[in-house]
């Protein structure tokens, strides 16, 4: 991993081995709402990390603290060894928000010139226009640009200072398949040059495929932290779903390899490491019908990790996720 490389280079610059993001026992309260309930997280330079979790998991609150937009209620937040606001002032951190953040009456070029003028050092505006593929619309008013063009402009703005840490909130929302692919190619290239990328996403396959590391957040806590395959391995196996009126959860739990049982009306959901045996038993020893076997993705992993303190929202997610 990058840690080793960072260590090798530690002699070159004292700051090179600094973690890109360092959160220690961070909490954030909004009145009586505990949005973040004690997050410890260390992201090394050059890592691509996905923040995954349902709405209200604390993703945005955590990102806001990393960007210095809000202060933690308690705990410590450091970005590249600096206080977040200082890291931003040094042009080390940039972020791309999903919506807004643009003035409709400015031209694309003026938006970039304006942004560039606020930093001590930036790449030339024309170069960034070219690289971001918006040179041809440089003199167009932002309000006249399509959603995709505006998103490319937001990226161009974020890339101006050549940030060491790039924070992306749902970066590919609204992009088509090709746009998403080329976006991630470019992002990976930057990561290989040492840029750290932290992105929040709802796309589970996106987190799995493009992140070195996936951090699962739920109810303001980190509930799992590892590679996509590690997260999947946490609940290895498959889900067997069938219609089985009058199912007895205790009997089902005793089946081979079963580590999760859910009964919703007449439907049963069984998480198991031996789906063959479970399916055979259901079809031969019970009246089960309409049987379905699915491989567990990150979403199932996420659900099994957070199913302890289930709320109504989480139950909705279970139904939506497993169907």
């Amino acid at each position: 991993m990058t840690t080793a490389t960072a260590r090798q280079e530690a002699g070159r610059a004292a700051t090179a081995s600094q973690p890109a993001v360092d959160l220690a026992a961070v909490t954030k309260d909004f009145g009586s709402v505990h949005a973040v309930r004690g997050v410890d997280l260390r992201v090394e330079q050059g890592e691509v990390v996905a923040f995954l979790g349902p709405n209200g998991a604390g993703k945005t609150s955590t990102i806001d603290m990393v960007l210095g937009l809000s202060r933690p209620t308690s705990g410590r937040v450091e970005v590249l060894g600096l206080e977040p606001r200082h890291a931003v002032a040094h042009g080390l951190v940039a972020a791309v928000m999903q919506t807004g953040g643009l003035l409709k009456d400015l031209t694309v070029r003026d938006t970039l010139r304006y942004t560039a003028s606020l930093f001590a050092d930036t790449a030339p505006v024309d170069e960034v226009l070219e690289v971001s593929g918006i040179a041809s619309i440089a003199d167009r008013k932002v309000g006249k640009c399509s959603g995709g063009e505006q998103q490319r402009l937001r990226f161009a703005m974020a890339l101006l200072p050549d940030p060491a840490l790039l924070v992306l909130d749902e970066p590919t929302t609204g992009m088509d398949v090709e746009g998403r692919r080329s976006f991630w190619e470019a992002t990976r290239r930057d990561a290989d040059r040492g840029r750290t990328v932290l992105f929040a996403t709802h796309y589970l396959d996106e987190a799995d495929r493009y992140a070195d590391r996936v951090v699962l957040l739920s109810h303001g806590r980190v509930v799992a932290d590892g590679t996509g395959s590690e997260i999947k391995a946490l609940t290895a196996g498959r889900t067997v779903r069938a219609i089985l009126p009058g199912a007895d959860p205790a009997t089902l739990r005793a089946l081979p390899g079963v580590d999760g049982v859910e009964v919703l009306a007449e439907q049963v959901y069984l998480r198991t490491t031996d789906s063959d045996a479970v399916a055979r038993w259901l079809l031969t020893s019970t009246d089960a019908r309409d049987l379905e076997i699915t491989a567990n993705g990150l979403e199932e992993a996420f659900l099994s990790l957070t199913s302890d303190d289930r709320t109504d929202d989480a139950t909705d997610a279970v139904e939506g996720g497993l169907r």
Binding site: R12, A14, T15, Q45, H90, G91, A116, S117, L118, R193
Partner: peptide, 22 residues
């Protein structure tokens, strides 16, 4: 993985808090 690391120490803060004529 990373072949180079961005040199944090080389980054400067703009003068006058970013206030500028452009």
């Amino acid at each position: 993985m990373s072949t180079s690391t961005i040199d944090v120490a080389a980054r400067r803060v703009p003068p006058f808090g970013g206030f500028n004529r452009t």
